[in-house]
Write a protein that binds this DNA or RNA. Sequence first.
DNA 1: TTTAGTACTTGACATTGCAAGGTACTAAAT
DNA 2: ATTTAGTACCTTGCAATGTCAAGTACTAAA
Lengths: 106, 106
Amino acid sequence: MNVQFKKGVLELIVLVAVNKKDMYGYELVAEVSRVVDVNEGTIYPLLKRLTNEHYFETYLRESTEGPPRKYYHLTAAGKLYMIQLEEEWNNLQIGVNSFLKEQGYE
Amino acid sequence: MNVQFKKGVLELIVLVAVNKKDMYGYELVAEVSRVVDVNEGTIYPLLKRLTNEHYFETYLRESTEGPPRKYYHLTAAGKLYMIQLEEEWNNLQIGVNSFLKEQGYE
DNA sequence: TTTAGTACTTGACATTGCAAGGTACTAAAT
DNA sequence: ATTTAGTACCTTGCAATGTCAAGTACTAAA
């Protein structure tokens, strides 16, 4: 998939996933990969950025299968931002699709 | 609009616009702005890049209203690329929208 | 002759995805 | 006991690309 397409929806997907339930980074890589191909080097910095912007709060939980997991929890501000991104995503689709139709693409 | 969303569809929109009819840069800025807010500093380098990749061919035409205009014409390779991007855009929408629905966003 | 609109170009900067490498923990295989 | 594999996190350096700002130059109207 085109790199650029991916960029636009990455934040939205991560926010929506964490909104459903608290998740840790490694788990998110797998979850997000179901929609867009993505790797750790992308997800961890993104999580850090969204945390710095107070859209996530984090806490540690030990695991029996490896090192402790850092869980991400969506804050109230994060929820607002998520809703805003959803709206923008919908508007983008409407805008682009009507432009494509208008230009008579086959 | 989220900066990132814009990036993903910019190429597609430009290709589709030029596919309909040959256009010059300044004209494209206005045309593309109908869908996503964009400025000259974005469009001209993008046109140059797509031309370097042989998706566009260019020619000059004088204008009575200012300096000569550089027109962009979609090549066969450009048309193939455009069709490919359209497909990826459609797949992205399907993937993201089904993920959102699955996560039960309101 | 100055201003505004048209038209193109480019350099410096910021953002951000990714590859690659590193650390460290657990459990199973050798 | 040691190695290997899977889990889990983080960071550095690089590349791609959108934006801001500034510059050039042409035409036409004030």
